[in-house]
Write a protein that binds this DNA or RNA. Sequence first.
DNA 1: CTCGTTTTGTTCTCCCGTTCACAAACTCCT
DNA 2: AGGAGTTTGTGAACGGGAGAACAAAACGAG
Lengths: 224, 224
Amino acid sequence: MTARTPDSARDIPEATVARLPVYLRALTGLAEDGTTTCSSEELAATAGVNSAKLRKDLSYLGSYGTRGVGYDVEYLRYQIAREIGVTQDWPVVIVGIGNLGHALANYSGFRSRGFRVVALLDADPSRHDEVVAGLDVRSFEDLESIVAEHDVSIGVIATPAVAAHAVAERMVAAGITSILNFAPTVLSVPDGVDVRKVDLSIELQILAYHEQRKAVSPGSEDVS
Amino acid sequence: MTARTPDSARDIPEATVARLPVYLRALTGLAEDGTTTCSSEELAATAGVNSAKLRKDLSYLGSYGTRGVGYDVEYLRYQIAREIGVTQDWPVVIVGIGNLGHALANYSGFRSRGFRVVALLDADPSRHDEVVAGLDVRSFEDLESIVAEHDVSIGVIATPAVAAHAVAERMVAAGITSILNFAPTVLSVPDGVDVRKVDLSIELQILAYHEQRKAVSPGSEDVS
DNA sequence: CTCGTTTTGTTCTCCCGTTCACAAACTCCT
DNA sequence: AGGAGTTTGTGAACGGGAGAACAAAACGAG
Ligand SMILES: NC(=O)c1ccc[n+]([C@@H]2O[C@H](COP(=O)([O-])OP(=O)(O)OC[C@H]3O[C@@H](n4cnc5c(N)ncnc54)[C@H](O)[C@@H]3O)[C@@H](O)[C@H]2O)c1
Ligand SMILES: NC(=O)c1ccc[n+]([C@@H]2O[C@H](COP(=O)([O-])OP(=O)(O)OC[C@H]3O[C@@H](n4cnc5c(N)ncnc54)[C@H](O)[C@@H]3O)[C@@H](O)[C@H]2O)c1
């Protein structure tokens, strides 16, 4: 069962994958400031991580640095972008154009980072008149045709929790294989489909836990 | 330096703390369905985790189950809520009432989970006329007085990235010790202040990475 | 009361991720 | 050309978390 790795396609640890976008952003910032070269120490400081960790992370991609010198900002930026896959544009559909859906649709940070919102879908017909961020809000029934037309593989769920699972199943059936879920629900999906959840309430509750402990014993606390 | 643990205040692993809110939500769901007792197996399935992991997590809080029976839903729910600190109400301020700030202000999930938005602040005077979710949008200059008046310790940053660090420093100076940051910036704060970040673009980029790899070698993929 | 059944709480082992520390490699200066 | 000074890439130690597996405890049947 020895997995072949014919060309590249090394397997990068999940923790590293999660940090690569942070490095990418840090490098973009450095490039905008006119920096052409940086050491692992500088980049690590900008990205807010340990420099040894940064170097090890980058070493999974290859040897893109020069000893005694550092990394070429533009070159490294491209290499990370290529590895993540954001040199190409990823089409994205957003389902559930309520409070949160509106904010997401209007968010310019998607476009600048390799994602293109191709459709906004909502089950409520009264929403369908609306134009948000230059896109019509369309019927959820159009999901399949839109996914097929634009070859969409990434979907965002911003519906109420009760609707989320049905939406997810319909997405998967339509051919979507990556889901970003904002609804506070556990989604169970087939193998081969990735789900990531963003849960605001959980984040606040984690902060509350630490806050409560600070009140009792003002010890050392820190969170990534 | 042997840390005293006079009463409770055991130190719960960070990974466990991050899951407790998930269990809390699962228990609330079970309670609403009329379930009064559940096994670790059932609860784990509802929360989407391994049952051994669930039991170990709960064991950090104490022995709240009954062998051969399971857990009392309402009792366990209260114990977790108490441990996290959401039996009390946490006052929260939101800074930056743009696209995202509006969505957050209108989100009812805060209130129902022990958080109360006490103020909405924005630097743009043209926003100050507005009323969002029953609250006036007030000047950022009012931060200190609001924090003092309501004893706020949790702040949410929803400003553009360039403003985020200045806002964070001002929050910390005002006495806030926990920050939830939506701006794509690394915040450096003094010890004793917790920062958690929510970064949409990073989540999407992680999905894109896995998506790209699926296209090359359709192997096994899964993300929590 | 005793035995069998169920389910918790915990121990043990393995794996992943973090960090330290250092040799290898490159540049620059003399 | 050679040596001093930097900085990368990585081997190795360490710590924490995940999951399997099991003993202890509670309960019910007879
Ligand atoms: N608003 C926030 O700041 C916030 C924060 C964290 C989490 N969330 C979560 O995000 C989700 C959306 O929040 P919101 O405040 O935007 O809610 P919302 O009620 O404003 O919007 C939900 C939208 O989804 C649509 N919808 C409902 N069922 C649907 C279906 N089956 N298919 C397609 N569309 C459907 C509704 O018509 C509505 O427009 C919720 O699950 C909420 O818990 C929101
Ligand atoms: N909209 C989204 O869906 C989304 C998604 C992910 C991340 N983000 C991030 O969240 C942040 C907010 O996004 P947005 O779309 O709401 O932006 P926005 O421009 O709509 O809103 C930003 C608000 O912050 C206010 N502001 C600016 N400087 C301020 C200061 N110094 N003090 C107080 N208020 C100030 C502005 O007046 C404005 O009202 C950004 O950093 C963005 O990158 C947004």
